[in-house]
Nucleic acid binder design. Structure first.
Length: 274
DNA sequence: CGTAGACCCTGCGCGC
DNA sequence: TGCGCGCAGGGTCTAC
């Protein structure tokens, strides 16, 4: 479900409600996510602590509490994190509820169970465990065409899976990889070894632009993305190619094509993208 | 070493 | 109306 823009929209929507809140208790209703939820660890690191800030690294939402711990949540494909009154009955596939001093609860629902939630020492976010291999943040000033070109050195294969590889740049999933390549006019099957400097620069610019546009429109809602208040986003109406196989390209009217890279659907315009 | 494909899981929409 | 199939925004693991 979520790529970087959706997680960022979620972060911004929850921040004003969560900062200053105190975590009362952790309720693990069903531990089976990609890694089993560790109720004892969540309780030990979070309960009794005050939430100081909400951050994001790649597609992880980070909830920092006082005392030096962080809750990391990854929504996988189908995860949804919402803030509701504490007495709200549990819903189907509600794995985790974090009960807050105000009486509300932050609940994580994830039907497909590809998501993750764990607590760790805040200092570990920079380099530990699941964060260790992550590449550059696309909305940071360390991201550029040069960064992409250098990441591509010694690599082979099509640019589209390269762009979705978190070692290259984080947060770019299937939708925004397709859209960025379209905006940059680069064919998704083009080999990374055959992209000139100017086109790397153009691609980096397109990545920043498409992610920023999506954030400002509240994210993309295809089936079930909602922000922390349960509201949907609007960027899906701005998608030029994703999910539009057979429809005319917004630029040249050629029918949008679909093909598969690494088991993921890729949508592109065969005329505008070379 | 790198890349391509299978796989994890449930739900939904579509065609028959 | 009911059923089977294909597909879904995530990441990781294995085979080559």
């Amino acid at each position: 479900m979520p790529e970087l823009p959706e997680v960022e929209v979620l972060r911004r929507s929850l921040e004003p409600y969560l900062v200053g809140e105190e975590v009362r208790r952790i309720e693990v209703r069903s531990p089976a996510l990609r890694e089993p939820l560790d109720a004892a660890e969540l309780e030990r690191r979070l309960a009794g602590h005050r939430i100081e800030r909400l951050g994001r690294r790649a597609k992880y939402l980070l909830v920092d509490v006082d005392g030096g711990s962080t809750l990391a949540v990854h929504l996988g494909m189908s995860g949804r994190l919402t803030l509701v009154p504490g007495e709200t009955p549990p819903e189907r596939h509600e794995h985790l509820a974090i009960h807050l001093a105000s009486g509300r609860k932050l609940r994580l629902r994830d039907p497909r169970r590809f998501g993750l939630a764990f607590a760790l020492a805040t200092a570990g976010v920079a380099a530990d465990g699941p964060f260790a291999h992550l590449g550059v943040e696309p909305l940071s000033d360390r991201f550029s065409g040069t960064a992409l070109r250098e990441a591509a050195r010694g690599r082979r294969g099509p640019v589209k899976p390269f762009l979705m590889d978190a070692r290259t740049v984080v947060g770019v999933g299937n939708i925004y990889a397709c859209e960025a390549l379209y905006r940059a006019g680069i064919h998704p099957s083009r080999s990374v070894a055959r992209i000139a400097r100017a086109r790397w620069n153009r691609l980096a610019g397109a990545v920043v632009e498409v992610l920023s546009d999506a954030i400002s429109e509240g994210g993309t809602t295809l089936n079930d993305f909602r922000n922390g208040a349960g509201e949907s986003g609007y960027f899906q109406v701005s998608l030029a190619v994703y999910g539009r196989e057979g429809e005319p390209c917004p630029t040249c009217r050629a029918p949008i094509r679909r093909r598969v890279h690494s088991n993921r659907s890729t949508f592109y315009c065969p005329r505008c993208q070379r």
